[in-house]
């Protein structure tokens, strides 16, 4: 399991090499990777193509190919991502019914696990989805490094990656 997580920084790095914001993630179910994602906004001209969205779709396909109900699989699936998911992705993770998100640095500009809003654990009126557990801290330093590399000297509005102490 922990061995698999070595792939995480590579996912982010791969996005960086393609000129995308260096965010990458893995969906892990029962010790195996069922979805991978890296940011793909530029390529698709769709600003919603965040790593998490791509990973969820890959995992949906994984379930479809094995003819298993995604809801049952997702309820025991965790997301590993190098930056706190944004509000949109946190919403998507809730809607999909994933169990937990383990992330690196916090996303002070768009974070949906508490930095801007806490979409990950708000109480909903119309569904009985359990809240999404959030665990910060994985590869936090590497993530900050990558983001700094990306934004270096580029933009005063750069996201504000922070390592949660």
């Amino acid at each position: 399991m922990t061995k698999l997580l070595f792939l995480l920084p590579f996912q982010a790095k791969a996005a960086l090499l393609q000129g995308e914001v260096p965010v990458g993630c893995l969906l892990v179910y029962d010790g195996q990777i069922i979805g991978k994602g890296k940011n793909g906004v530029n390529f698709t001209k769709n600003a919603t193509r965040h790593a998490e969205m791509l990973a969820i779709e890959e995992a949906l396909d994984w379930c479809k190919n094995r003819n298993v109900a995604y809801k049952e699989v997702f309820a025991r699936t965790d997301l590993y991502v190098n930056v706190e998911p944004c509000i949109m992705c946190a919403g998507a993770l809730r809607i999909s019914g994933l169990r937990r998100v383990v992330y690196g640095c916090s996303n002070e500009r768009f974070g949906g696990c508490g930095s801007i809003l806490d979409v990950a654990s708000d109480q909903r009126t119309t569904d009985s989805q359990p809240v999404l557990q959030c665990v910060p801290g994985i590869f936090a330093e590497t993530s900050v490094q990558l983001l700094k590399e990306f934004y270096r000297g580029q933009n005063p509005n750069a996201p504000n990656p922070k390592v949660k102490k």
Binding site: V21, V23, V41, A47, H50, A51, F110, Q154, N157, A158
Partner: peptide
């Protein structure tokens, strides 16, 4: 995209760069 207005530069969550 090469010629977007400046203020649209890479400050989206994982934005167009």
């Amino acid at each position: 995209l090469g010629s977007q207005p400046d203020n649209l530069q890479n400050d989206v969550g994982q934005p167009t760069l």
